[in-house]
């Protein structure tokens, strides 16, 4: 799964990145790379056993939700 995600990230980077680079939209390229990097980090984190941000959010907010809802 991890490998597939990385492959997908690479593919997106190539397909989207090359035209951006050709047109000189460096800022766009940078933001896109950061996003891909985040995806990469998330997968790596999961691989290393770190909780996902949604899980963290759940730990924070679920008690509130359970207090309100049944």
């Amino acid at each position: 799964m991890t490998a597939l995600i990385m492959l997908a990230a690479l593919a997106i980077g190539l397909v989207e990145g090359i035209p951006l680079g050709k047109q000189g939209q460096w800022k766009e390229l940078a933001v896109m790379s950061i996003l891909l990097g985040i995806a990469f980090l998330l997968v790596m984190g999961y691989y290393l056993g770190l909780p996902s941000p949604l899980v963290l959010m759940e730990r924070l907010l679920e008690p509130v939700g359970k207090a309100i809802f049944k």
Binding site: I12, E16, K27, L29, L42, V43, V55
Partner: peptide, 29 residues
């Protein structure tokens, strides 16, 4: 996101965004 960062185009952010979303939905639950 494109407007916050001040980009000229947003199209290139869709696929990476989808990828993050996919990863999140895979690893969170």
């Amino acid at each position: 996101l494109a407007q916050i960062v001040g980009l000229k185009s947003y199209q290139s952010l869709i696929y990476p965004g989808a990828l993050i979303s996919l990863v999140l939905s895979l690893i969170s639950f």
